[in-house]
Structure formats: structure tokens, C-alpha cells
Design a protein around this nucleic acid. Structure first.
Lengths: 143, 143
DNA sequence: CGCGATTTAATTGTGTACAATGCAATTGTA
DNA sequence: TACAATTGCATTGTACACAATTAAATCGCG
């Protein structure tokens, strides 16, 4: 019963489960992230800052695959929350540096259990998770 | 060098590559979708209509994992483009039915090559694609 | 050195996503 | 059969995403 439109069926797409799973996982983070007052995008931004302490907006965008249209307002929001500081690079005034604050660093202790809680609520075993991780990273090596 | 914050590192997340790959794949569709005047979300909506001809908004939302807040304006946009008609179910006026138009059906011929073109521009072989598909669908079975 | 090209963040405009709320139609039940 | 509960789409408000444009700072070449 193959017809020339078979490839256009939703069930035959790889993009759609990727898109649907991504949204669902973000949705499942929400209850935990609400408790610490972050959105998902703010959370991955804080992850980078927890690890690096400070970073330029350009490098941050490359790490998160986000551009300034997304990051500029988001970083201002996080500054308003007192989690980071924004300052111009004195060497080159074009660059904006974001640096984590004490309050931002303290938030890490409230976030530390989130990854385990999330893992527990996903229907995936360790081996499949690792396979998924590997394939997705291989895809990303091409971006 | 393991510390208690290791799980909070971006590189140790499964959610992040999922999120990044999903966005990147949608971004790569854009040049092809621009040619037929659809966004990605409009494209997957049309996929359902190409297959089913007509469907209620509730069932459409369940199929795409989207709610009325997303679908209501999107379906009005597609109606304005002349690709579908919106009408109330005469049996139960609460239900809105969307039905594809001739113009909407004709668009399928312009879209038919998109899945192959997309497949060609992703750095993934057939076996990995199948594994990825299987794992993501297993995840989705839980939504 | 002067000045056009490049780099970088910010802004603007469009289109999702989704929680929360509103509201009209229908259903279930006393 | 009233009427409270439920259902289903629409609306509102918030927050991304990202393309395109702008504007300021720096670079590089003649």
C-alpha cells in the first residue's frame, strides 16, 4: 500500500518525535524549576555559569546554540533576579561578560537534586539513555 | 575529581542535546519550508491533514502534543492561507473541525521531496536513525 | 593614519509553546 | 427536567526562538 506520499506521514518522520520529546522533557522540568524560579532556558544558562563562573555572551550563545535575540532579554531577566552581573569587557567594549553572583552560586544547592528527579520520571533505562546521548551528540558534532 | 555538582553540568544532561537537536532540525527545515510558505508547526499540522483530510481540534492536539493556545491562532493562519477550512461540528457545537481544501491538498505535491532532502542533510546513518526513532517513540509512549 | 569591512550585542517583528482563565455547549444526575 | 459538573475552543500573559536590522567598537588594509 505504499504511495508516493508515504514519506510525508507524521509517523515516518524522525524530526517529530525529536520535537515532541524535547518539549515534553522541558515540560517535566517545569515543576522542579518553578521551585527555584527558573525557566528551562534560564536553567541551562545557569548551568554554564555554575561551571564557569563567568563567560562572554558570544561563547555562551555558542555553548547553548542560542543567539543574542534570545540571550539578551534572558540575561537581563537573570540580572534582575540578582543571579548574575552583566558588564562590558574593558579590553573590547563590544563584548558583554556575564558573571555569576553569590546569590546565583547559592542557587546551585537548590538545583542539585533536579537531574536525579528528572531521570526518575523518564521512561528510559540507563543503556538506552546512553545510546540516545551518543546519537544526539553525534548529530550535534555537525552543527 | 567528581564533586556533588557533577550532575548539574550541561555535558551530563540528556535533556540538552534533545533540546538542541530538536531546534537545529527545525532550523534546517526552514529553507525548504519557506519555499512552500509554512513554518515547522504548520508543516506537521498539514501532514496530519494530508493523511486524514479532516480532523477535530482536540484529536489534532493529541496527535501533535499541542494545546488550543497554540493551535487556535495557527489554524486561523492556515485558514487565511486557504489551506484548510474551520467549521463547527453540527452534532456538538463545542467541537471545531478542520478540513483540508483543494489548495491545501495541492501543496502536498510541493512538499513531497522535503523529507528526502532533510534526510540527506543530517549526519546520521540509517541504523542510528532507526535506533533514535525507536528510543524516542518508547519515551513518547509514556506521555 | 584613515576609513571601509567586520564583529558583537541589542532591538524588532513574527510565530510558536503553554499555563491559566473565560465562556458556551453538553452531559450526568438527583 | 433543573442545574452543577464537565468538555472543548478561544483568549491572555509570559517566555522563548530566530531572522533581519541596527549601532557601536574594533580591525585591517592601503
Amino acid at each position: 500500500m505504499a504511495d508516493k506520499y508515504d514519506r510525508l506521514k507524521l509517523d515516518n518522520q524522525l524530526c517529530f518525535p525529536l520535537y515532541a520529546c524535547s518539549k515534553e522533557v522541558v515540560r517535566r522540568y517545569k515543576p522542579y524549576l518553578d521551585k527555584i524560579g527558573l525557566t528551562y532556558t534560564q536553567y541551562i544558562t545557569m548551568m554554564v555559569l555554575w561551571e564557569k563562573g563567568e563567560i562572554g555572551v558570544k561563547a555562551l550563545g555558542e555553548r547553548l546554540y542560542l543567539d543574542s535575540g534570545t540571550l539578551s532579554p534572558l540575561l537581563k531577566t537573570l540580572e534582575k533576579k540578582g543571579l548574575l552581573e552583566r558588564k562590558r569587557d574593558e579590553e573590547d567594549e563590544r563584548n558583554l561578560i556575564v558573571r555569576i553572583t553569590k546569590k546565583g552560586l547559592a542557587l546551585r544547592d537548590e538545583a542539585v537534586d533536579i537531574p536525579l528527579k528528572m531521570g526518575a520520571c523518564l521512561n528510559i533505562d540507563a543503556e538506552e539513555a546512553q545510546t540516545l546521548y551518543r546519537i544526539l551528540h553525534k548529530l550535534m558534532s555537525d552543527f
